[in-house]
């Protein structure tokens, strides 16, 4: 070996990586301390819901109304990721917010739907 130059640098980097990896594993993998975004079914009779804009492509287009929720993964039920929650009430869970459809919240490929009765 010509010189032991990179030893300290590599050692320092490995130490840093262990700290970072360990902490992130604890935070994300074990504690599930991150936000989860998902679409859940929305009651269009009571709220302004999102729905897929099928005007461009009607084939296989899902017209189910949905609302967008952001929830702390730790508190989220497993049906969120599987998109299988029948009636999800955000208020029942800690750190959960709901986004209903509004003109400034609509993204490409979706639109608002509401069947609210006055």
């Amino acid at each position: 070996m010509r010189r032991s130059g990179p030893g300290v640098l590599i050692g320092g980097i490995i130490f840093g990586l262990i700290i970072i990896t360990g902490y992130r594993f604890y935070e994300y993998a074990l504690q599930r301390n991150f936000l989860l975004q998902a679409n859940v079914t929305c009651d269009a009779q009571h709220n302004s819901c999102f729905v897929a804009d099928c005007s461009a492509d009607t084939l296989g287009c899902d017209t189910t109304a949905y609302e967008k929720i952001t929830i702390l993964a730790r508190n989220a039920p497993s049906c969120i990721e599987e998109h299988s929650c029948k009636e999800f009430n955000c208020a029942s869970y800690g750190t959960c917010s709901v986004q209903y459809c509004a003109a400034n919240a609509v993204q490409t490929g979706e639109k608002c739907i509401t069947t609210q009765t006055p």
Binding site: I20, Y28, F34, Q37, A73
Partner: peptide, 28 residues
């Protein structure tokens, strides 16, 4: 050059450590 390299790595390392680099998981 080693110092410059480490300085270049630091912002990403710090943001990774404190979780600044990711916002959320999009389950959709």
């Amino acid at each position: 050059q080693k110092i410059v390299g480490v300085l270049f790595l630091l912002p990403t390392a710090i943001s990774t450590l404190f979780g600044y680099n990711l916002l959320s998981f999009d389950a959709n």
